[in-house]
Each structure stands twice: as structure tokens, then as C-alpha cells.
Design a protein around this nucleic acid. Structure first.
Length: 572
RNA sequence: GGACCAUUAGCUCAGCUGGAUAGAGCGCUGCCCUCCGAAGGCAGAGGCCAGAGGUUCGAAUCCUCUAUGGUCCGCCA
């Protein structure tokens, strides 16, 4: 139950009452009326802008509306005060019992914060989708963490979520992979090999070459590509996907579905998707204008088969067939998204890396065209991750084969720290990931700070248990205790905002805030022993004090659950 | 030449479908442990929200232009 949504209902009911009594004209649109926490807590617990947004359409002064509204709201049991302020804000202070009840509700309902907002609608979240040519690197890691947390968040808010990975196993890069593995295969047979430009020299293919040798013996030695390429491609792709699954597992990411690009070829599905677009008059033969500015050296105008993506918001039309008649990468991608639509998803989300920014508009155009604008596609771009260690930047170079992998990061700091840290920035901002900072035990490190709060609470609970104290209904009295309870009351609202905007980082920041409130209360206990959760020699008083920290731990655990992070029982 | 993203305190960043005196951490200055874990907490200093116009009761937030930085830009995926 979202306390703010509840109060908004009260406000709307009061407005209806004003209309019924003729204090407000009928037919007003209340859609813009909000109930929010005021920026300054001194203004109260909640504030509504109702009087200001209605003043103009009602032809009345904001303060007059606010005053009339205040009179009605003051009659409610759970409203302690309603004051008109500023240009026409109505500040509401809630009765103490509201906050106590909030704590009670959290204790009674471990799903406190869960929302039915999604109404069971089906959403497909596609993320990672790295080429099956090697282990995942840090860039993929961010996408994996983001996509997974977003999927969790949507699940938490009532969506039916499918987590999906699109395997790019249909293009030229898997041929390159196959040739690279073939070289390792030759190497396994004792031959000297040289890795030319355009092959993958990474060590991770050595084992694959060995395994290939074990499987086929010397059958491919001295043979041409026509003999081995197709088989080695399948073999190598399967091996890479196995590697990638293990990488994802190390990070705690589990996909519901792996969807193969190759499965689209030779089945008529690409043709079907493009035929659908053709039927809408969106496919044509044509020649694109050369790009403005500096031209590629080998530019020459060629006729291609184009998708009229400009009809759905793109800047230029996009080729779906190369000049030699084969598909571009875009064509199977269109078919893939058509397949998602066909599977009945109500909404699609793609999580891409920053280097795919130029791809967003055409993908949205395709989905819009294919679904007649019925199915929304949101594309979330994760900006680059910059790694730091000992004050020096780490560099990545996939070509050289010495890039920093997901495993490097997870092995260094663990999956929990990796996940939380990567969610301490919004997806469209670049992220500095400092290995030293990530494992530092100080409030400078948000992971630690939140975990510390949880561990402190668990420490208290262990102590209470040892003393035979059993938690009872919450007893709140000090302002610092109410501050924490207010923060807890914001959780359901925060979750809905984060989910609506597809921004899981908001959860991480909220947990930091909540932890801050908690640490603050804890420290007040240093000066004022009556605020400690365990009251020495007074089991009854302790019992009533233990409810609040339990509620905090519960919400922290829920939030960390969304982020995919395990709450700690104690700090080492 | 174009597209997308960013620009908020000395540094790193939050900021809710537009709300009141713009927040946090680090750093800086001072405080708080005979006390459930001080791995914390409290207080102070520090801002033309890149700039200029516009929209309106009201703009860090929406629109336009400019500047700076990042990512990308036919037959690569």
C-alpha cells in the first residue's frame, strides 16, 4: 500500500466533496493533482498542489481552494494538521499512528512495497546479447546487472517478465570465431600458428581447440574451409555460449530464454517480417544519400533494399539487404522483434551498450511499424564503464585479447559488490568503477554503507534473541524514530517511480538514504540511551523498540533483492 | 555535416508525470565512544543547476538556439 497514493485518494474525495457543495465548479480535471513528500521536511509529511493546478480552470484563488480543502482534510482521523503555505501548497502532517501502522504493516507483510502496477502485463527484457565470440567483459557486465535488476524491478511491480538473450550467431563474426578456433585446433596438433588481423587471439580459445581435437581427431588437418567451417562454427559457438552462461551465473544472472539469430535463417521468418512491412508500403529499392561531412574512402552510391524507417521517426531509411543481396544485420533483428511481438508481449525493453546508440531509432521504427504502434519498445543504453585500480585507468582491447572480463571483476570484488556498484549510477551516465573503492569499508562506499546497516540490525537481533527478548508491536516516540518510519513509508512509492521510469538505480539510492536515516538513529542512541533498541534490564521496552529496525532490515532486504544483492548478516 | 546522451558545490554524483530556501558522499573546519559495532554520527563553510531566449501561477526539470564533453554515423555485427 502506497501511503501517498492513499492520501491522494483522500484529497480527490475531498475535492469531489467541494464540487458537490458547490465550492468548486464541476467538470474539473484532477489528473495533475499530486501528493508528494515536500522537499523540506519542515513543511510536513506530504504536500499537495491541488489548489494551484485547479485555481486557473476553476477561476478561483489558489489559497481559497487550499483553505477549503484543508478544512475537509482536517476532519480525517489520520490527518493531524493541514496548513496552507506558500503560493497555495497544502501541507499535511499525519497522525503519529500512521507511521506506527506503517511499521506494523511491514512486519506483517514481507511483500511490503510490492505493487500490482504492471497488472500482469507481459514484458520482454532483452539484455547482454553479447556476440558469442568470447567471455563477457565489463561493458557486458553493466548491461547484465542493469537488465537483471530492471527485470527484477518489473517483476516486483506486477509485470510478467521474460528475461531474454539474443545470440548473434548468424553473422560473419562467428566465421571469424570458427577460423580462430581452427587455428587453436592446429596448435593443439603441435603446429605453429599465426593470428592474422581479423582473428581472435585470446587464450580462452585454446581449450576449445583442444576439445575440438579430442572430438574430431586429425580429420580437419589440411582440409579446406568447405570441409570444416560449418561444423567448427557450431562447435565454437556452443562452447562460447557455455562460457557466457557460466559468466552470467557467476554474476547471479539467469535468463529465461536464449534466442538464436541463426534460427531465423532458412525458415522464412525474416522474409515474413519484411513481407509484413512490404505490405504496409515500407520496403522499397533505392539509393541512400551519402553521409554528410567526411565520406568513407570507398563510398559509392548503390541500390539497396531499404526499410522506410523515416515513416516511424527515424532520420534516414535503413538498408535491410546488402548490395550483394544478403541480409544486413538489421533484417534478422527486425524478424527477431517481430517474433517478440508475435509471442504476445505487451511491452519490449532492449538493453544495449553505448555503442548501439545509433541503432535505437531504427529499432523503435521497426517495432512501431510491425505492431502498428501497439507495442512500446524502450531502449535503455548503458554508457561505458571505466575501470580504475590504484589510481590508474584499466584499458580494454578485445582485439588484443587482454580485455578485462566479467570474471576479472567478479573474482576481485564478488558478485554482490559488482552488482550494487554498477547500479549506483543511472544507465545513461558513464560509470567509473574503482576496484579499491568498491571493497572499501567506509561510508564512501554505498555498498558497504547499506550492508552495514543491515548487519547492524542483525547484530542487535542476535543480541536480543540471546537475552530472550521477543519483538512486540512497534512503539515509536522520538523524532528520529519517526524519521526512519517516514523513510520506510516512501518505499512503495519509490518502487513504482523506479519501475515506471525503468530506472533500477533509484532503488540503490533509496537504500542509501534509508540506511543513512537508520545510522543516524543508531548514533543518537549513543548520546541518549533511551533510543537504543535494547533497553538494558527492560524486556518490555526492548520488545517495542525492536520493531523499527526489523522493518528497516526487511525493506533493505527487499531492495537488495531487486538489485540481486544478498544482505549481509554480519560484516567481516 | 547529422543523430543520441551528458553538463548541478573544489571532486564524484542524486534530484519524482514542472513545485516552496536545489541535496548526498569525498575533501576542508570543528565536535561526539566508561555507550547495542565510532567500519558510524552531528555541525559549519562551499551553487548564476554550462550560457541565452521561450512556455506559466511556478523551470535544474518542458521547448528553441549556442558552447563543451562522450558514443555513433551506407554493403560490421
Amino acid at each position: 500500500m502506497n501511503l501517498f497514493a492513499h492520501m491522494r485518494g483522500d484529497v480527490l474525495a475531498a475535492l469531489d466533496g467541494l464540487v458537490a457543495d458547490g465550492d468548486l465548479p464541476a467538470g474539473l480535471d484532477f489528473g495533475n493533482v499530486t501528493v508528494e513528500p515536500p522537499r523540506d521536511p519542515g513543511h510536513g509529511d506530504m504536500a499537495t498542489n491541488a489548489a494551484m493546478v485547479l485555481a486557473k480552470p476553476a477561476g478561483l484563488k489558489p489559497r481559497d481552494i487550499a483553505t477549503a480543502l484543508a478544512a475537509r482534510l482536517q476532519g480525517l482521523d489520520h490527518v493531524a494538521a493541514a496548513e496552507v503555505a506558500g503560493p497555495g501548497f497544502l501541507n499535511l502532517r499525519l497522525a503519529d499512528g500512521v507511521w506506527t501502522d506503517t511499521v506494523t504493516r511491514i512486519l506483517d507483510d514481507e511483500d511490503y512495497g510490492r505493487s500490482a502496477m504492471g497488472q500482469g502485463a507481459r514484458v520482454n527484457v532483452e539484455y547482454v546479447s553479447a556476440n558469442p565470440t568470447g567471455p563477457l567483459h565489463v561493458g557486458h557486465t553493466r548491461g547484465a546487472v542493469f537488465g537483471d535488476a530492471l527485470a527484477n524491478l518489473l517483476d516486483y511491480t506486477g509485470w510478467a517478465v521474460t528475461r531474454e538473450y539474443y545470440i548473434n550467431d548468424g553473422g560473419a563474426q562467428v566465421d571469424v570465431l570458427a577460423r580462430s578456433v581452427y587455428l587453436r585446433y592446429l596448435e593443439a596438433h603441435g603446429q605453429e600458428v599465426a593470428f592474422a588481423d581479423g582473428t581472435y587471439p585470446g587464450d580462452y580459445l585454446k581449450a576449445v581447440g583442444e576439445t575440438l581435437k579430442d572430438k574430431v581427431g586429425d580429420a580437419y588437418l589440411g582440409a579446406g574451409e568447405d570441409v570444416w567451417l560449418a561444423d567448427v562454427r557450431d562447435f565454437a559457438t556452443a562452447a562460447m555460449m557455455e562460457l557466457i552462461r557460466e559468466d552470467l551465473a557467476a554474476l547471479g544472472v539467469r535468463m529465461d530464454n536464449f534466442y538464436s539469430e541463426k534460427s531465423l535463417y532458412g525458415t522464412g521468418r525474416i522474409e515474413a517480417a519484411l513481407a509484413l512491412l512490404d505490405g504496409k508500403g515500407l520496403i522499397y529499392r533505392g539509393t541512400l544519400e551519402p553521409p554528410k561531412g567526411k565520406l568513407p574512402d570507398d563510398w559509392e552510391a548503390r541500390e539497396q533494399t531499404l526499410f522506410k524507417s523515416t515513416a516511424h521517426g527515424d532520420d534516414v531509411d535503413r538498408p535491410v539487404r546488402k548490395s550483394d543481396g544478403s541480409w544486413t544485420y538489421f533484417a534478422p533483428d527486425i524478424a527477431y522483434h517481430y517474433d517478440k511481438i508475435d509471442r504476445g508481449f505487451d511491452a519490449l525493453i532492449d538493453v544495449f551498450g553505448a555503442d548501439h546508440g545509433g541503432y535505437v531509432k531504427r529499432m523503435k521504427a521497426a517495432v512501431s511499424a510491425l505492431s502498428d504502434a501497439r507495442v512500446p519498445l524502450d531502449v535503455k543504453l548503458c554508457q561505458l564503464v571505466k575501470l580504475w585500480k590504484n589510481g590508474e585507468p584499466f584499458t580494454m582491447s578485445k582485439r588484443a585479447g587482454n580485455f578485462v572480463t566479467l570474471r576479472d571483476v567478479v573474482d576481485e570484488v564478488g558478485p554482490d559488490v559488482t552488482r550494487f556498484t554498477m547500479l549506483t549510477r543511472k544507465n545513461d551516465a558513464p560509470l567509473d568503477f574503482d576496484f579499491a573503492r568498491a571493497v572499501e569499508q567506509s561510508k564512501d562506499n554505498p555498498v558497504f554503507y547499506v550492508q552495514y546497516a543491515h548487519a547492524r540490525i542483525r547484530s542487535v537481533e542476535r543480541k536480543a534473541e540471546a537475552q530472550g527478548i521477543v519483538m512486540s508491536a512497534p512503539v515509536l516516540s522520538d523524532p528520529a524514530e519517526f524519521d526512519v518510519a517516514r523513510k520506510l513509508a516512501e518505499w512503495p512509492r519509490l518502487v513504482e517511480i523506479a519501475a515506471r521510469n525503468h530506472e533500477p538505480h533509484r532503488v540503490a539510492f533509496y537504500l542509501y538514504d534509508l540506511s543513512s536515516s537508520f545510522h543516524s538513529l543508531w548514533n543518537k542512541g549513543n548520546d541518549d540511551p533511551s533510543l537504543r533498541f535494547i533497553q538494558e534490564g527492560d524486556a518490555d521496552a526492548s520488545a517495542g523498540k525492536l520493531a523499527l529496525p526489523r522493518a528497516v532490515a526487511s525493506v533493505i532486504a527487499s531492495g537488495l533483492g531487486i538489485l540481486g544483492v544478498t544482505p549481509l548478516e554480519e560484516m567481516r
